[in-house]
Design a protein around this nucleic acid. Structure first.
Length: 382
DNA sequence: TCATATGATTGTGG
DNA sequence: CCACAATCATATGA
C-alpha cells in the first residue's frame, strides 16, 4: 500500500489544533511521516473524548489530510478481515409463527385485509336485515362495524407511522453511516446489517401493535358478537311460527335446509338461529314432554282448528293465523319423542284435559288420538 | 330479586 | 358437518 504523499507542504496548519506542527517542515521525511501518522492515529483515538465542535473540526482537518486516503484504505483492509467473522452470524430466519397467527387473524377479522366494510360477519347480518327483522341486531352490528372500522383505521395509521418512522430512521442512520464512512471504515454490508437491525426492531414494535389490535378486536367481538351477552328473545310471532312448525312436524322435527330458510325468512331470523331454535326445542321438549305436551296439544288444536275450518268455539289464542294444510295435524304427536318418557300425561292437570277437550272439539276422532298417544308412550319403558 | 324461560355456545360422538 | 347434551348468560315475569 503506497500512500501517495501529496506535495511537501502540510495542509493541516490551517487548523488551529494543528498549530503545533507549524514549524516541523525541517525534519527528515520518514521520521516526519511516522510522527505524523502516529499523531493522526492518536487524534482519531481521542476524537470521541472531545466536544462535538472540536471533534467536527478535527474530523474535517483529518479528512483533508493528505495521508487520509492511505490510512483509510489500510483501515478498510483490516476491517474487511475482522468483520467477516461477525458477518455470517444471523441469516434468514423463518417467519415467526405467532406473527403469522396474528396476521391471519387480523385478515380474518377484516382489519388487515383489503379495505372493505363488514367482512365475514356482514353476510349474517345481511340475511337478518334483508328479512326486515331485527333492527336491534342491525344497530348493534353497525355499531360493531363502526368500532371495527375505528380499530382498523387506528391500526393502519399506526402501521403507517411505524413504517414512516422506520424509513426515516433508517435513512438517517444510513446517511450518518455514509457520512462517517468517510472517516471511518464502514463497509456497505455493515450499513445493510444496521438497516436489518433497525427493521427488526420496528418489526417487533409492529408485532406489538398487531397483538394489541388483536386483543382489541377480541374484546370487541366478545362485547358485541357474543350474542349470549345481549340476548334478545325472538318476537312472539316468530316463536309462534317456529312452534307451529315444530309441533306440526313432531314426528320428524328436522326441517330441511329449505324449510329452515323459509322459517328464517318468515321469522326474520337467520338460518342458524332456526337451527339453534330447533336444537333447543327438540332437546327441551324431550326433556319435559309432560309440560311440553300442553304446548303440543295447544298447537295441534290450533292447526286442527285451522284445518277443520271451524270458525266456532276453538278458544286457542291466535287460532286465526295458521293454515296447516295437512289433515294429519292432530296425529303428529306420535312422533319421535313419544317413546322416551312415560309420564307425559301426568302433568295432565286441567290444562291438558282442557286441551284434549279442545282437540276433541276440533277433531272427529279424539279416541284415535288418545290411543295413539298411549301407544307411543309404551315403548320407552324398556 | 328470584326462578324460570330462552337463545347461543361448547364439547362430544357419529 | 350435524345432532345432542350440557352449560352459559341474559330476559322476563312474579
Amino acid at each position: 500500500m503506497d500512500m501517495h504523499p501529496q506535495g511537501g507542504s502540510v495542509s493541516l496548519t490551517s487548523s488551529g489544533m494543528m498549530g503545533q506542527y507549524g514549524g516541523m517542515g525541517e525534519q527528515e521525511p520518514s521520521e516526519q511521516r511516522k510522527q505524523e501518522i502516529g499523531d493522526i492515529l492518536q487524534q482519531i483515538m481521542t476524537i470521541t473524548d472531545q466536544s462535538l465542535d472540536e471533534a467536527q473540526a478535527r474530523k474535517h482537518t483529518l479528512n483533508c489530510h493528505r495521508m487520509k486516503p492511505a490510512l483509510f484504505s489500510v483501515l478498510c483492509e483490516i476491517k474487511e478481515k475482522t468483520v467477516l467473522s461477525i458477518r455470517n452470524t444471523q441469516e434468514e430466519e423463518p417467519p415467526d409463527p405467532q406473527l403469522m397467527r396474528l396476521d391471519n387473524m387480523l385478515i380474518a377479522e377484516g382489519v388487515a385485509g383489503p379495505e372493505k366494510g363488514g367482512g365475514s360477519s356482514a353476510a349474517a347480518n345481511a340475511t337478518a336485515a334483508a328479512s326486515g327483522g331485527q333492527p336491534d341486531s342491525a344497530i348493534e352490528h353497525s355499531d360493531y362495524r363502526a368500532k371495527l372500522t375505528q380499530i382498523r383505521q387506528i391500526y393502519h395509521t399506526e402501521l403507517e407511522k411505524y413504517e414512516q418512522a422506520c424509513n426515516e430512521f433508517t435513512t438517517h442512520v444510513v446517511n450518518l453511516l455514509r457520512e462517517q464512512s468517510r472517516t471511518r471504515p464502514i463497509a456497505p454490508k455493515e450499513i445493510e446489517r444496521m438497516v436489518g437491525i433497525i427493521r427488526k426492531k420496528f418489526a417487533a414494535i409492529e408485532m406489538q401493535l398487531k397483538q394489541s389490535t388483536c386483543e382489541a378486536v377480541m374484546i370487541l367481538r366478545s362485547r358485541f358478537l357474543d350474542a349470549r351477552r345481549k340476548r334478545r328473545n325472538f318476537s312472539k310471532q316468530a316463536t309462534e311460527i317456529l312452534n307451529e312448525y315444530f309441533y306440526s312436524h313432531l314426528s320428524n322435527p328436522y326441517p330441511s335446509e329449505e324449510a329452515k330458510e323459509e322459517l328464517a325468512r318468515k321469522c326474520g331470523i337467520t338460518v342458524s338461529q332456526v337451527s339453534n331454535w330447533f336444537g333447543n326445542k327438540r332437546i327441551r321438549y324431550k326433556k319435559n314432554i309432560g309440560k311440553a305436551q300442553e304446548e303440543a296439544n295447544l298447537y295441534a288444536a290450533k292447526t286442527a282448528a285451522a284445518a277443520a275450518q271451524h270458525g266456532g268455539h276453538t278458544e286457542g289464542p291466535g287460532a286465526a293465523g295458521y293454515n296447516m294444510p295437512t289433515s294429519t295435524a292432530g296425529m303428529q304427536q306420535g312422533g319421535m319423542y313419544m317413546n322416551l318418557n312415560g309420564d307425559n300425561y301426568q302433568s295432565g292437570d286441567a290444562s291438558v284435559n282442557q286441551l284434549r277437550h279442545v282437540s276433541q272439539a276440533g277433531y272427529s276422532s279424539p279416541d284415535s288420538q288418545h290411543s295413539s298417544n298411549a301407544g307411543m308412550y309404551d315403548h320407552q319403558l324398556d
